[in-house]
Amino acid sequence: MKDSSNSLDFSLVLASSVHDMKNSLGMLLSSLEGIIQETPPENDEQAKRFATLQYETSRINGELIQLLSVYRMQKNRMPLHIDEHFVIDLIEDQIARNHMLFETRNIEIDIQCDADLNGYFDNDLVGGVVHNVLINCARYTKQKLQVSAELVDKVLCIAIADDGEGYPEAMLGAPTLSSSSDAFNSGSTNLGLYFANEVAKLHCQNDLCGRIELSNNGPLGGGVFKLYIP
């Protein structure tokens, strides 16, 4: 359909270009996986480079997906399919998705989740949040990550803890949003947190809506990201 006005909807152009980039990156990622599989690294130096390649492409990919999702949320075009799911499936999916990353970085992952624990959420969106946090943690953690899920006062809590230095002071608590200029000046757009918070807010039961929480001194001594879904 033709647009009657001549003005260009920049966000639309951006969104469709992001979409293309994401697809290209998808190709890149799968080729990369193929290469690593066919020609395993011969020394530590190579292994490190592979890890960097892997990490950076995953990160860009995650970022692009978030951009698209935020765009869709703003246009009210984000389909929300809340249904009953097993939490362990979601966690395992996201860990499997990033297993190359953890392997190349020698990160050990501990899962604490009852196999029968279920929750009501949109699998893709919450999966996306967990995915992003995992990628982020892979960068800051030393050697271990713990992903756990449990019911806290009937609210599902998915927590991801690392043994790194912890989150910076300014990010602690329940971050709301950060399209603020501060975020841009510090070089971080905090898009990930914004996305996570928006996804949490889309999950409501009665009058209670989801939220996220960041804290330090977690079970592994580092930071903890918590996503609460009623």
Binding site: L25, M27, E33, R97, N98, H99, M100
Partner: peptide
């Protein structure tokens, strides 16, 4: 959804 790693594909198929 692509990109999909071998491991996660197998996990889905398994389930």
């Amino acid at each position: 959804t692509k990109p999909i790693t071998a491991k996660s594909l197998l996990q889905r198929v398994d389930r």
